Amino acid sequence: MLTLNIDWFQPFNGVTYSCGAIYLAINNLPCSERFKKENVILVGLMPEPKEASTSDINNYLKLLVNELMELYKGIKIKTHQCPNITSIQAALLMVACDIPAAKKVCRFTSNTSTNACHKCKHQFSRLAGTSSVDYSGFDFSKCLLRTKNDNHKNAEIWRNATKPTERQCLEVTHGVRWSKLHRLQYFDIVCCTIIDPIHNLFLGTARRMLERWVANGLINNKKLIAMQKAVEKVVLPPNYMSLGTKIAKGFPYMKADEWKSWCIVYSPVVLRMCCHCQSSRTG
C-alpha cells in the first residue's frame, strides 16, 4: 500500500525557485522505517521556477498513474528474497500533502473557493464587500458528504466540457476537476485525500491559539521568560526539534516541526504552569 506525497522546496538560498518532488511511501513498512530516504520512492521532480499549476500537475501524474495501474494488476520481478521472480502488487492508499498541493493533485477547487471543503458539498458564501470566503457558522454534522461516485461523475462532466466558461461554472457548482488519479478505479479520491495535520494543527490551530492568548494578555512577556526557563529542563525525545530561545522571544518564525515539538512535548509542561499561575491569581 502506497501513500502519494507531493511538495515543493527551495533548492537554492537567496533565489525564488521552487522545485516539486513527487514521492511514494510504502505503508507496509513500520512507521520508523517508511520515511527513511532509502525506503522512499522518488517518482519524479518538477523543475519549475515556480510551483506547477493545477493543470500541469496532471501531466506529471500521467506516467505514475500508468505504472500504478500495472502494479494493481500485478507484475513479475526479481527481488532480494525471491531471485527467481515473484509477483508483486501495489495500490495507492492515500494522498498526503498540504492543503494547496492536495487540491492540485486531486483537482479539487482551492480553499479560497466557495467549495472549500473537499469532504462535503457545503457551499460557503463570501464576506460582504470582499472576495474572502466566510467560514463562519460551518456545522460539519449538517453537511452532505461527497462520495466517490458523485466526485467521479462530476469530474468526468468537467473533462467533457469544451468551453472554459462551462468548466468554470462546473467548478463553482461541484468544486471538482478531472485528475489523472480518477483513472484508478479502486481509489476513493474523496475519502483517501487526508486532511493534512501539519498545516492544520501545528501551523494553524496551535499558532492561532498562542497568538490569541498573547493578544488577550493570558500570556505576557514575563510568562514567556518563565516558560523558556521551564523548557530548558525538558529532555527532548528523539526526532523532536528544539525550540532554542524562541519561546522567550514570542514564538517567532516557527516551522512545522517546531510547532510539533511545542504541541506534543513542551506545551503540556509549560501551559500547566501558566494555567496554575492564572488560577491562583484569580482564586
Score class of each variant (00 low, 15 high):
G204L: 05
L210I: 13
V172P: 01
D196C: 08
L181F: 09
T147Q: 06
R183I: 03
K163A: 09
E211I: 04
I194C: 13
G175R: 08
R208V: 07
P164G: 09
D196S: 09
E211F: 05
H199I: 09
V190R: 03
C169K: 14
N149H: 03
Q168A: 13
C191H: 08
K163R: 12
L144C: 10
L181V: 07
A155E: 01
N160T: 11
T147C: 06
F202A: 08
C169L: 13
A155F: 04
T147L: 05
L170S: 00
L184W: 00
M209W: 15
C191R: 08
E166A: 13
C192L: 09
P164Y: 12
R146Y: 06
K153I: 12
K180E: 15
K153C: 08
T193C: 05
K163P: 00
K148M: 13
Q168W: 09
C191I: 03
P197G: 09
T165W: 10
M209L: 15
C169E: 14
R146A: 04
E166F: 05
D188G: 10
K180W: 03
F187W: 03
L144H: 10
H182D: 05
G204T: 06
T173R: 13
E166W: 06
V172M: 09
Q168L: 12
V172T: 13
L203A: 07
D188F: 08
L210G: 00
M209K: 08
A155D: 01
P164H: 11
N151K: 06
N160Q: 15
Q185D: 14
I194W: 11
A161P: 07
Q185W: 09
R183S: 02
H152I: 09
W158P: 01
R207H: 10
N149S: 06
T147W: 04
L203F: 04
R183T: 02
H182A: 03
L184H: 01
N154Y: 15
L181K: 02
H182I: 06
C143P: 09
L184F: 01
I189G: 00
D196N: 12
S179G: 05
N200M: 10
P197M: 10
R183C: 04
K148T: 06
L210E: 02
Y186W: 08
W158I: 07
L203T: 02
K148V: 05
V176T: 14
C169Y: 10
R208W: 11
L144V: 13
Q168S: 14
H182V: 06
Q168C: 10
V176Q: 07
R208H: 13
F187P: 00
L201R: 03
P164W: 11
N160K: 15
R146S: 05
P164C: 09
V172K: 15
P164Q: 11
I195L: 15
L181Q: 04
H199N: 13
E211A: 07
R159T: 10
K153M: 10
L181E: 03
E211Q: 08
E171M: 12
W158H: 14
E171K: 12
R167H: 02
I198H: 12
T165S: 15
